[in-house]
């Protein structure tokens, strides 16, 4: 998991999940400052895949959420923010850029 290694290299403590249910199980048991979710993880296309934002905020309203998508339409991006995502990034995106967004959100 390239992103995990990159963020760990920056000093973050990182848990990674390969499936939506794995991510949900982690969210049910631990508190996170930041969640970076690739919409591919949800296995659901369209706005239905944005459920992950609600899953995060149901557990902890203060957790920051960054969404990544290679197929993000303007509609999905708009709906992401409506549902409470803090950032929506279109792939491909350099790790350095993702990390910059994460740092900025965590410093706010």
């Amino acid at each position: 998991m390239a992103m995990r290694k990159y963020f760990e290299g920056l000093g973050f403590i990182v848990d990674g999940a390969y499936e939506l249910e794995e991510a949900q199980a982690l969210l049910a048991n631990y508190r996170y400052d930041l969640v970076i979710a690739d919409l591919r993880l949800t296995g659901i296309g369209g706005v239905e895949g944005l459920q992950i934002v609600s899953d995060v905020h149901q557990r902890c309203a203060n957790t920051r959420v960054v969404l990544l998508s290679a197929f993000g339409t303007p509609e999905i991006e708009r709906e992401s923010y409506n549902r409470g995502a803090d950032a929506f990034l279109h792939k491909p995106k350099a790790m350095m850029e993702i990390a910059h967004v994460a740092r900025t959100l965590l410093d706010q």
Binding site: D15, G16, A17, E21, E22, Q24, A25, L26, A28, N29
Partner: peptide, 16 residues
């Protein structure tokens, strides 16, 4: 893996 924690393991299993 994350599933070394029994809580995570069984939450995952129930979600599945």
């Amino acid at each position: 893996t994350n599933f070394e924690s029994a809580n995570v393991l069984f939450d995952y299993v129930r979600l599945k």
